[in-house]
Design a protein around this nucleic acid. Structure first.
Lengths: 206, 206
DNA sequence: CGAAACTAGTTGCACTGAGACTAGGTGCAG
DNA sequence: CTGCACCTAGTCTCAGTGCAACTAGTTTCG
């Protein structure tokens, strides 16, 4: 029994795509891009893809179908998913969908240190973020408009709906905070914070 | 000129806490937990904390204030933030707040492979997720109720508001999809998908 | 015909997450 | 009063990730 392969978004996607047909690594990357999934799986640098494939291969979840050479191109190894790979893909997928994993994104961590700035400075940087989010949102909306015309079944684009919903939610939240900063519902001063900091006595320090 | 230190949520938090007072690594961990920031910065395993501190130290952002020994405890090194550390912390914070970084969480990646399941199976796993999210949400709400009574300034707890808003948004989205699955607004079958998959001809494969 | 850009795969490095391990200290129960 | 569990404090290792550079052929276009 070899050590079980750890699940990863890219690993799952590779297994899923190999369900449709055996393929070589670069072809997988192309396919991911064609299906518009680069937004969501991170295949930007190929290194991760090759390493993931190696790992899946070592774990027996995929197997070499053939190695072909098309003279002008370097040798390409075509992989196919194994029976075990199918079973594992399903388990991974169910796990990933059913239980939310806590992932420590940077924004909330940064937010927790926002008292380091003055309210005016915080307002400024959050306005920049709101603009970035708005740009991202309109991008997503444009993409959705295009996809709507493609006649693809809705389920194949469901992840875009999710990403959109989350961006919208974040933008709304940021704008709400901005408005609280503007009208003074949310404010602070270094002295006020210092006073409260003293209540929190740290464990034996000096 | 030594290589610039890469920013990280934990690095920022360490610098921020050392603004209040010089402290040793374990004390920092305790402080993070006391302030309820373990939700958001990931200091669960100390290894990361020690490595981060080493890195900040090597980069000149923090300096050794003293090494004390409290006989019964092992030696503890107390660090303080340097002038450069203060400047860098501010830059990091502004960057992290102002520009959203795309981070590839697993859920959207998993969603993009949801057609591997049947609609009925998808419904089942998403219901599990909705329950997990609801539990997480009520936890956050309980915590907020407690915090509200503590008299702490709102800004010091702002990250909890954000996390709550995002959990709520995700739960709403998941429940909306569940209801679409239930009433048939969202459905699919293997044959339908196979038909569409053929339209997407992959780059030279065989 | 030469520069730039694309195809395809490889390599290295720094960082992260998770866990095990050491090693002394403290509290409690049998 | 001894052994067990748990706490404090720090270290180590391993697998996995993100990012960037590098090789080496290929096509495109001025």
């Amino acid at each position: 029994m070899t050590a079980p392969v750890k699940s990863s978004p890219l690993g799952l996607t590779v297994l899923a795509l190999l369900h449709y047909r055996p393929l070589h690594p670069y072809g997988l990357q192309q396919l991911i891009k064609q299906w518009g999934k680069e937004q969501v799986v991170n295949v930007g640098q190929r290194a991760g893809l090759y390493r993931t494939i190696e790992r899946l291969h070592a774990g027996g979840l995929i197997a070499v179908r053939q190695t072909e050479r098309d003279q002008q191109y370097p040798e390409r190894t075509v992989y196919e998913v194994t029976a075990e790979g199918r079973a594992v893909a399903r388990q991974w997928l169910e796990q990933m969908l059913a239980v939310p994993k806590s992932e420590f994104p940077v924004f909330p961590a940064a937010l927790s240190n926002v008292p380091m700035l003055t309210p005016a400075e915080a307002l400024e940087v959050l306005e920049k973020r709101a603009e970035h989010l708005a740009a991202q949102r309109t991008d997503l909306e444009a993409r959705q408009a295009v996809d709507a015309g493609s006649g693809l079944p809705r389920v194949t684009l469901i992840e875009n709906e999710y990403v959109h919903a989350m961006v919208v939610a974040e933008e709304r939240w940021v704008r709400a905070v901005i408005s609280d900063l503007r009208n003074g519902d949310l404010t602070w001063s270094p002295e006020l914070l210092a006073a409260f900091a003293e209540h929190y006595e740290a464990p034996s320090a000096d």
